[in-house]
């Protein structure tokens, strides 16, 4: 199976590096297609991207070559220092074009340049994708793809039905992340679309967050003004029911 010339020998022994780039690329692609969580998809995207960058960088490798920084004997500044250290006019005359025999001593710098900027732009675009994920979570309360599709479908059917009755978006059985207060939220707040959060909010905040002192002193009918004046620094207020239906 691994004798010379066979396809397995060519792929798994002589060109093992390409085989592994392909495997990494496929892992990333598979994660982008099949993973359910959007963050996992983004990690898959990064793996995909890194595999391609790895491929490009490995193209520039030369056997027996050093890094693409001039050695002292080829360094333009080094040669001036020996030539003449006093006259700055001679600076430009010291350097010579590298002879063709010395070129294979250095790794190909071009792939490095192309990929260096790609890495930095990659993290910027990763941040952009993560911010879109945060917005999705803000709107739908989940970053799992199946739950997201279910909610979108629900919303579409509601729009297509044309009924005026507004159903809360989050009232889905699939939303397991909430508390007991969350599942009932839609029914109770459907009629009262006022700006007054009900005591339910307090209940939710107690159940979800480890509240500290100020939360317990919170008055029963807390509203926004109270929120601002509260001396709470690190406590997160819980979900407001009314915004689930906007």
């Amino acid at each position: 199976m691994f004798e010379d010339g066979s396809i397995f020998n060519q792929l798994l022994v002589e060109r093992l590096n390409y085989f592994i780039y392909v495997v990494l690329l496929l892992i990333g692609l598979w994660a982008m297609i099949a993973k359910n969580n959007l963050i996992k998809k983004l990690i898959g995207m990064s793996i995909f991207q890194t595999a391609i960058i790895l491929f490009y960088v490995s193209i520039g490798v030369k056997e027996g070559a050093t890094i693409p920084i001039y050695l002292p004997e080829h360094d333009p500044h080094g040669s001036h220092a020996q030539l003449d250290s006093n006259q700055t006019d001679l600076l430009s005359h010291g350097a010579k074009v590298l002879e063709a025999s010395a070129v294979p001593n250095y790794t190909n710098p071009l792939p490095h340049v192309l990929m260096l900027t790609a890495i930095v732009v990659g993290v910027a675009t990763l941040g952009l994708a993560l911010s879109v994920c945060l917005r999705i979570y803000r709107g739908y309360g989940t970053v799992e793809e199946d739950e997201l599709l279910e909610k979108l479908e629900r919303e579409d059917s509601r729009k297509a039905g044309g009924s005026n009755k507004r159903r809360p978006r989050r009232r889905t059985p699939a939303n397991k992340g909430g508390t007991a207060g969350q599942s009932k939220r839609g029914q109770t707040t459907e009629k009262t679309k006022s700006d007054k959060p009900t005591p339910r909010r307090r209940q939710a905040s107690k159940s979800r967050t480890k509240t500290n002192g100020p939360a317990k002193e919170q008055p029963k009918s807390s509203n926004k003004e109270n929120d601002k004046t509260k001396p709470v620094k690190r406590r997160r207020p819980a979900k407001k029911p009314k915004e689930d239906e906007s």
């Binding site: 193209i59 010579k96 070129v103 710098p109």
Partner: peptide
């Protein structure tokens, strides 16, 4: 070392001429 990427004239030009053109030792 004979691969198309390494033997391309562009890469060879960068390696050979960076020192003359810019005096920068780091080609990248």
């Amino acid at each position: 070392p004979q691969s198309p990427a390494s033997s391309s004239p562009v890469a060879s030009h960068f390696i050979a001429n960076t020192g003359v053109d810019t005096e920068v030792p780091n080609m990248v």
